[in-house]
Amino acid sequence: MKTTLVMKTTIAAATALLLSACSGGLKVVESDLQHHHWNLTAINGVAVDPEIKSDLEIAEHFTINGMAGCNRFFGSATLEQNRLKADPLASTKMACDPVAQKVETAVLQTLGEGATVNNKGQQLELVGEQYTLTYQLADWMK
């Protein structure tokens, strides 16, 4: 009788865990992303030239800034239902070489249109309509 009760309790707990996992996965919260510096490593699975040094910082009150390709950007963003969306961003306006311009377009377009966030601890993926940006955690912001 005790074994049956323990078994039923275990099955109920496992079912609840599976249902919560299937209903959208783990929710990313702002505090999981804030105070981090991320370096862009790939776009759509293709490695980004490390000389471009594209990065993203997410700070207090969900302000964001970084290097898109050859221009710095800054502004604020929201995170709702695992979707990161930047408010209209301000940026510098330097001319980019064609390779850096492709990176810059992908970053600014993805942040502006919004992207689903997959936070894998040391790796952050922003999955937009056209681009998937893969970032590697660089360090904690001080």
Results as ranks from 00 to 15, higher is better:
L26H: 14
L26N: 13
K27P: 00
V28P: 02
V29L: 11
V29R: 10
L33V: 03
Q34V: 04
H35W: 09
H35I: 01
L40Q: 06
L40V: 05
L40A: 07
T41A: 15
T41C: 05
G45H: 06
A47Q: 13
V48K: 02
V48S: 02
D49I: 11
S54I: 07
D55S: 15
L56E: 02
L56D: 02
I58W: 07
A59N: 14
E60G: 08
T63E: 12
I64N: 06
I64H: 08
N65E: 12
A68T: 01
G69R: 08
C70L: 05
N71A: 03
N71C: 02
F74G: 12
S76N: 14
R83D: 02
T92H: 07
T92Q: 06
K93A: 13
M94T: 00
P98E: 12
A106T: 00
A106M: 07
L108R: 09
L108Q: 10
Q109T: 12
Q109A: 12
Q109F: 10
T110I: 02
L111M: 04
L111P: 00
G112P: 00
G114D: 08
G114S: 10
N118R: 13
N118V: 13
G121V: 06
Q122P: 09
Q123E: 15
V127I: 15
G128C: 07
E129Y: 10
Q130P: 00
Y131N: 14
T132F: 05
T134I: 02
T134A: 13
Y135K: 11
L137Q: 08
L137W: 14
